[in-house]
Amino acid sequence: MSIFSCNQIHKSYQTGCLKHTRKKALTDVSFQVKQREVFGIIGLNGAGKSTILKIFMAFVKPDKGTVSINDQPVASKGSHQSIGYLPEHPSLYPHLSIKEHLQFGCRVAGLSAQEEKKRIQTALETVDLTEVAKMPIRGFSKGMTQRAALAYTILLKPEILILDEPMSGLDPLGRQLVLDIIQEYHDRGATILFCSHILTDVERICDRIGIMHQGQLVSVVTADSLDKDYVSTSTKGSQTPLEHYFLNTVRTEIS
């Protein structure tokens, strides 16, 4: 069974208010992600990674094509029941504390007061923000905001995670934290779709990797085949297998 599935999706954004010029963001993208799989999308800036994730969250509607999560079309009721989404530039309410955000998340889910307390405590401990739980978000640094948003994302222990550049803005400690969380969810059997342009991070945690270039999904490889391939063909010591493969793929696309 595939958790994420998209079929021949096209998307262009309208740019300009009066002139109906459009900017192509995605062209004919199709892929599936099976249950318990970690699927990473990599690509240069503007390749269309975030757009795919937003289409899965139903924030953006594709011009053409079908998108489903858990075999339900996205936008339908209940298709986002158990998803944790981390936006690219997470923005929380500046005058509210992280605790109030988490409380909101629990209340919307209809949790009991006891359960709420437990979940909030766990989430705060996971991202190490217990000390600043009551501080307004506007006093947070970029990294702290990213962690706060991460706590909000994993608050309800979702079975599906959609993470848009989860490591951006984090120090080495924070990055390790994100990697640990992803690993933990992977071990627990969650399905994870995420994108990044930091190849080394992707390499360590993904089962399969999709490479995007100018709105197209140009290649999908499994992490295992990548290693074998690399050992047999490459002699360049300074690049990791994924870097080698990615650069080759993108270079052939450009030329």
């Binding site: 924030f59 986002h80 989404y85 936006p87 923005s91 955000h101 919307v108 994302t153």
Partner: peptide, 14 residues
């Protein structure tokens, strides 16, 4: 504008 709305809508809120 600030995409704070994602925080809300990501919670399965219509």
């Amino acid at each position: 504008e600030n995409r704070t709305i994602y925080t809300l809508l990501a919670r399965n809120i219509s």
